[in-house]
Design a protein around this nucleic acid. Sequence first.
RNA 1: GGAGGGGUGCCGGAGCGGUUAAUCGGAGCAGACUGUAAAUCUGCCGCCCGGAAGGGCUACGUAGGUUCGAAUCCUACCCCCUCCA
Length: 384
Amino acid sequence: MAPFRLTATCPYTGARGGELITPHGTVLTPAFAPVASAGVVKTLSPEELRGVGVGLLLTNAYHLMLRPGLEAITALGGLHRFMAWDGPIVSDSGGYQVFSLARLVKVSEEGVVFRSHIDGSRHSLSPEESVALQEGLGADVIMALDQPTAYGVGCEEADGAAQRTARWAVRCLQALRGGGELWGIVQGGTFADLRRQSAEHMASLGFPGFAIGGLCLGESREEMWRMVEASVAPLPPASPRYLMGVGSPEELVEAVSRGVDLFDSALPTRIARNGSLLTGKGRINIGNSRFQRREAPVEEDCPCYTCRTYSAAYLSHLFRTGETLGLRLATLHNLTFIMGLMARMRDAIRQGTFPRFREEFLSGYRPTDEAERLARRRQRGREG
RNA sequence: GGAGGGGUGCCGGAGCGGUUAAUCGGAGCAGACUGUAAAUCUGCCGCCCGGAAGGGCUACGUAGGUUCGAAUCCUACCCCCUCCA
């Protein structure tokens, strides 16, 4: 079994290049997996995903358990066949829903009891059940059930969740039937020492890969990077590191330079559906009036179908009129942007130019940051 | 010609004596979105000054009137709709 192979490292940053080898193909890292919780990247077909360079998808055990259910998927030939995606799939354990659906969830040592967000029915998800479910789906990489904590919880609560995650991790390993690829998840809230402990513990359990969870939930960027650094440090260098739920373009670059190999995030696809488009200079809201008469594409040199074919004005029009084509075109564009960014990072790492790439990208990319903008305006006001 | 009903902010449409610059939609203008309960959510949305708090001005077809006070009551006029002739 050679699930992960390091192929390049950056001497000045922590960035690495590698290959994640799965039964459904090899993924070059650093890699980004679009989120397909319900077995779809919303609005796109597998063919379109391939077309924009997607090689890996993230699905979700909790969502697929509720609909259509494991029995249905098994009867229909497994998840890959069901969703007509023949590439690698990572499946999430449902741990994130412990956080995002907290109101409907009761967590105990045994596991998690959910009230379905769809119809209120009760479902349980223990570490063992989660592993069985994910193995049953046929995902290439499956995640241990974990317990993320909301941003702002105290040390004690974060510690409790991290330790429970650790105990669940052991149970997940023991529940593994097919000897598939099961990765552990580092928790520890916003406490560096807890993060280190959690990572050390996960490393000691011998997982073939490691995820860093529970971040990007409201903490500042500085705080988040401290946590990523604390989480990464104790992990075995030869194993893949997966920063769950991240992220935005600038975050991907920052995280890669800290040694992260794999990402997933709903951000690019979700903001696309809400009319936010990623460009090399930052995000834009395509519905803004300034695009109504713009004949140029969203981004001049973008290779995506949307930019090759349509004006920004047309895309703006589709959003203003609520036409569904707009959702698809925007999603295609954003994923093209992200996949292109990952490819550029891989190239730069291999060619030894990653630090320069990082600087150039970050200096040219202006993330929309409301707080920052407000501060800037206040500053200007004071000066004026 | 007769009998009813109605004219409210960009549009639709509440309100029917004071707590109303006027509920609520839509449109418009901006913002957010990160292991997706999201094609969602939030803010602004008469004019002027202000960063804001707040202040000033103009407003419910038109013109008068009643009243301490009117989008709300009365009168006349102008428009619109329905029915009858």
